[in-house]
Design a protein around this nucleic acid. Structure first.
Lengths: 340, 340
DNA sequence: AAGATTTGCTAAATTGTTTTAGTTCAATGT
DNA sequence: ACATTGAACTAAAACAATTTAGCAAATCTT
């Protein structure tokens, strides 16, 4: 009772072969023609003594760990935190555990993390990739690991991807501001080449071009801390007095932006209309409440995990594999007081 | 080059024993009297072919996985998200990976998670425990697993714990409100028996008793969704018109509370002073800005992970083990406009 | 009734590492 | 000249599962 017992102990105690026990425990009794009587006997004993297979031994033998590697930008960002939470729940229900890490959008760090996950034999990967990971991820795919990308994609990497219509989302937001009569609309974003950031910028450019309005794009350094971001936004808004609306490309830039606006003593929406990205409690509760482009977090998570589980379940089955899929979901424009 | 090579391949190729290679790779060359010449030869070849040990095999053999199990209430709560983020970074720097899950404060779910983590042979545990886990955690400790509890402790479980002075923190907050002249101070909390919740309640009771003020305690159901919480707070505040200040015991209750207050059209701080728990961007940016009791997230994380790493490093060494430690950190009262 | 097939099971190999308990050879001690 | 010691290394067991290949008996086929 003291030390954990193994399949060998079970077999010995019941006077049957290890093989038989293994087959039975793996649900291959029928297939391997084990008699119902023996199946019953083994199952009952296993239940009685509470035997649990040694997962390290199993993993070692099979190479499968029932673990999914999850790489997000930053687990403490509400968007990624919520995604992680949903993915975790669904993975759990399907017998998978999550190994997670935050990449900080750092290419080298992410490469290293992928290496670590490979060493640990995770079965599949969910990645919000930094730039420059094409080769590393293609290598994963070449070695038949299921990989689902989300939030941003990589040109030249053929795998499942789940994201949103960034161009259209921002375009709609900017267009709304234009129709409300704003003439000098700024776009505050990151100096990032990631696809979602490029697309959000494209959405902005498309809208202002279409209405022949001037462009005001402020790119904030990727790896700045919050204070610095706020400072940069303050100085940007100070320099460009003509700006009468501002659109942010991420939730945290919007938060920094609101701090900047509050420090500048600007009145929203009178002096400045504000449009944020993602939906935080803050945006709802802020006075005035902040309009935003909200991502369908639950649907994104659901699509991500079901894509991956599909691949995990069929990759060993040798079935014809489904073609890779790009899932592009719509954002919703939530109109609140900041754009009145 | 195609298939991963093992220590056996290395040994064969260099015409040495597997044992020697293993000793060298594990830094036991000196101890095991392997000649410098051979060490050099092996190391060079290993480097050249980029050999990486199979961690599943190693884990299987040694029972160690270099994995830490992290159980938090909810990874998408900003407090736990930030803690997880810090712990993840520190663990990573020390060669450990994190397996995480959210417990939802559900005792049965947590028990199950602990079982899963044991099955997966995590080396150590960091747990923000739900109630009723005394036996399960004591069992972990009995089996010599390092366990660090944080955020709340369990009576009768002797292990390292990192938390804050909940009684003192809330006491100070309430006292501040009293000194500002508030007479009917409500405390909105969860119907939870967890230690941190009991203590926060005690802190409130201590303060109002000391000043002989009436008690208004509203307990919200643990597993309610956000809308329901808000509704309950609304009806509570409607019933008790005399209340002139309200203190929340968690960050999300404060958020629900602010929604309630906004829906009721109450003026803060004129009608109602507000004191929150934890510090969110929202509290800083809300108009009026919200006073709060802020936990030292970085210090909590640092203490948690360094306690655990200490145990992990000495548990195998057979050194005299240090006595278990309770680390109790102070909160800081951040005074903003909501309590003016 | 001989051969073929099916049923019900098992022996043994395999996986990659760590570690125990040696072995071999040369140098040293007496 | 023979025992002792130390240096430098190695053979083989152990870890706990999965899986391949196959055996003996029972049943079926013709």
């Amino acid at each position: 009772m003291e030390k954990k017992l193994s399949i060998v102990d079970i077999a010995k105690h019941l006077n049957v072969s290890i093989t038989a026990v293994s087959f039975i425990l793996n649900g291959k009794a029928k297939e391997k023609r084990i008699s119902d009587e023996l199946v019953e006997r083994v199952l009952q004993f296993v239940e009685e003594v509470g035997y649990k297979p040694n997962l390290l031994a199993r993993g070692f033998r099979t190479g499968k760990t029932n673990t999914i590697g999850l790489l997000v930008e930053d687990i403490s960002n509400p968007f990624f935190g919520a995604i992680a939470r949903n993915i975790e729940d669904a993975a759990y229900r399907n017998g998978y555990k999550i190994l997670y890490s935050s990449t900080d959008n750092d290419t080298e760090k992410t490469k290293e993390l992928i290496r670590v996950y490979r060493d640990r034999c995770v079965d599949g990967y969910i990645i919000a990739p930094a730039e420059g990971l094409e080769d590393d991820i293609n290598d994963l795919i070449k070695h038949a690991f299921p990989v689902v990308l989300f939030d941003r994609f990589l040109e030249g990497v053929k795998t499942d991807y789940v994201g949103i219509d960034n161009v259209g989302g921002i375009y709609n937001g900017v267009k709304y501001l234009i129709e409300k009569g704003r003439k000098n609309i700024a776009f505050i974003t990151l100096d990032s080449l990631q696809s979602q950031m490029r697309d959000r910028c494209l959405g902005y450019e498309k809208a202002v071009k279409e209405y022949q309005l001037p462009e005001f794009i402020k790119e904030i350094g990727f790896h700045q801390n919050t204070e610095n971001r706020t400072k940069q936004i303050i100085s940007f808004l100070k320099r460009k007095k003509e700006i009468d609306a501002v659109v942010f490309s991420t939730n945290y830039l919007a938060v920094s932006g609101l701090k900047a606006i509050s420090q500048l003593g600007l009145s929203v929406p009178r002096d400045l209309a504000v449009m944020a990205f993602d939906d935080l409690d803050l945006f709802e509760l802020y006075a005035p409440s902040i309009s935003t482009m909200s991502q369908p977090i639950k649907r994104i998570s659901d699509e991500v995990i079901s894509r991956l589980l599909d691949r995990l379940n069929t990759s060993s089955g040798g079935k014809k594999k489904k073609p890779f899929q790009d899932v592009v979901l719509e954002t919703s424009l939530i109109i609140r007081n900041s754009t009145k």
